[in-house]
Amino acid sequence: MRAPTEGSAALATDTAMADRLRRRRFRHPTEAVIKALLTASGFVSLAATALILLVLFEGTLTFFQDVPLADFFLQTRWQPLFEPVSFGIWELVAGTANVVLWSLVVAVPFGLGAAIYLSEYANPSVRRVLKPLLEALAGVPTVVYAYFALTFITLDVLRPLLGDNISIFNSLGASIVMAVMILPTIASISEDAMTNVPRELREGAYALGATRLEVALRIVVPAALSGIIASILLAIARVVGETMIVAVAAGSTPNLTLSPLESIQTMTGYMLQIGLGDAERGTIKYESLFAVGAMLFMLTLVFNLGAHLFVRRFQERYE
């Protein structure tokens, strides 16, 4: 931009130049076409969200024309497949909560332990090997974990150990394997947060005579807390949405319990059960899929959004 003192001649040149520049955008006709194509592809993800919302909303609406809203939220029995039918969502929510609870009981101590080790103890060469190996756990297909939960953890370990106190299909086997699945999520994101804690905080504590353990637990963990919480929220979202492990190993008995020894059914487990049979369109079984799906969608959305908020908080603080 030129200063206005240089006179009107310069201004005229600027206008001409601006004109030429504006025209230059159309020098290549392909440019406009490509830009339009790219913009269109940007809209596909919006369309996907819109479709998900539309499908869930429409199906849920149809469901609630047959089942009163109050029954869904106020009754406790989920018994859609045989008479007398009952559609209280809480048994399925309890099933999901059950698996969330027990998988966190296992995964949080070990995940945070692994994160602390990687961030505060490991030397760089160990870290370079260990971290990708841990993250590889997240790449194992869940149907493989499902097989492992049922055949190895439950049949080869838990049943011989606990006998008939634990049913063949149980929450514990599924939760233990689920914990292995979410461990990399917790360890990796927490470790990132811990590595982001400024060096000066650590060195200040060391200078005052703190040991490595004290620095880790009293300085680094509190300073990285929002990242740690974010990692746990993300892990919860993954457990809530995970289907194969619970469908194979946790059973298909809706059950209002937090006991790890009993057979249960989660929201996702029920949805897969309907998917396995061929529920005719228009039947109440088919419509219930959408109501449970909507509930599942909202739950995972809440946990994912929560994680985003916490992630942003720790990024703002230290970057």
Partner: peptide, 28 residues
């Protein structure tokens, strides 16, 4: 911002929900 937020959230949608979408939209 909306597009980016939407992508982040889509990445967290459970796969079985995509299955419900496929069943209702593509299959049926």
């Amino acid at each position: 911002t909306v597009i980016k937020l939407n992508l982040a959230n889509l990445a967290g949608v459970p796969s079985i929900i995509y299955g419900v979408l496929g069943l209702a939209v593509f299959v049926r």
